[in-house]
Computed example of a mutant assay.
Amino acid sequence: MSLVKQLEQDMKSALKNKEKTKLSVIRMLRASIKKEEIDRRHALSEDDVLEVIMREIKQRKDSLSEYEKAGREELAQKEREEIEILQAYLPEQLSEEEVRALVQQVIQEVGAATKADMGRVMGAIMPRVKGKADGRLVNRLVQESLR
């Protein structure tokens, strides 16, 4: 089942079960997807929908860190709940060890040796982990490997 159809079904379910937070998050996500479709002037592919979901998660993680710095625990908790709901629509995430192994494999494939090769490594690895790993984690592991 496509992600868009899954969102539609989950929205109906949340509406019936009176799950306010889940309902608002799904509505917001569907609105973001619709806006992206309008901007691009065509229906989004599954990969495009995953990009929108990842962008929404990233925004919430940024807000979460700001709320935690400001000591606003009630708002931080709300962001955590929204992140959890959004992450349910992503494919199963790779563990840090799996990402580390993939980084080593890509470094060998592109023949990278120094930090100057970081762009080539990131360019080769990001399409492989799209939606399955956080870009910050990948970036950190590539930097550690290219010292």
Rank of each mutant, 00 (worst) to 15 (best):
M1Y: 03
A88R: 14
D48P: 00
G71E: 06
V142L: 13
V110T: 14
K69W: 01
E19D: 15
K132D: 01
M28W: 05
K18A: 11
L90C: 09
K61C: 01
G131I: 06
A14L: 04
I26E: 09
V49H: 02
L90S: 05
P91I: 09
L146T: 02
Y67W: 11
Q105E: 12
I83K: 04
V138C: 12
E37F: 03
S13T: 15
L29S: 11
R80V: 01
E79P: 10
R40N: 14
V99K: 02
G71I: 11
Q59P: 00
G135V: 11
A31R: 11
L146S: 04
A31N: 12
Q143L: 13
S13E: 14
E84G: 08
E74I: 09
K35G: 08
D48F: 00
K34H: 09
A70N: 07
S145K: 07
A113F: 10
A112V: 10
A31C: 02
T21A: 06
S65H: 09
L102W: 01
E51N: 07
T114M: 08
Q77I: 06
E109W: 03
D39T: 06
L64G: 04
S65T: 09
L146F: 09
A88C: 10
A124K: 13
N139E: 13
R40C: 05
V52P: 03
D10Q: 08
I57P: 15
L102E: 07
S2E: 10
I53V: 10
K58V: 08
R100W: 00
L102H: 02
P91V: 10
L44H: 00
R27M: 08
M126N: 15
R40E: 08
V4S: 11
A112R: 09
A101V: 00
H42Q: 12
Q93A: 04
M122S: 01
H42S: 06
E144H: 03
V49D: 08
A31E: 11
I83G: 06
K34S: 09
K18C: 06
S63P: 00
E36Q: 14
L146R: 03
R140W: 07
E81P: 10
I53Q: 09
V129R: 07
G111H: 10
Q143K: 14
Q6L: 14
Q108F: 13
Q9A: 13
M1C: 06
E96H: 07
S32A: 15
A116L: 15
V4L: 12
E79I: 05
R136C: 01
L90T: 09
V106A: 02
Q9C: 07
M118P: 00
E37W: 04
E79Q: 13
A70P: 03
M126H: 13
A76V: 10
V106T: 10
Q59G: 07
M54P: 04
L15W: 15
M11F: 12
K35F: 05
Q108A: 15
K20H: 14
R72C: 02
A76I: 11
R30F: 01
I125K: 03
R72Y: 11
L137M: 10
E46K: 07
K61E: 12
E81V: 15
D47E: 10
V25C: 06
E92P: 08
G135F: 01
Q105M: 02
E37Y: 03
D48A: 03
E51W: 00
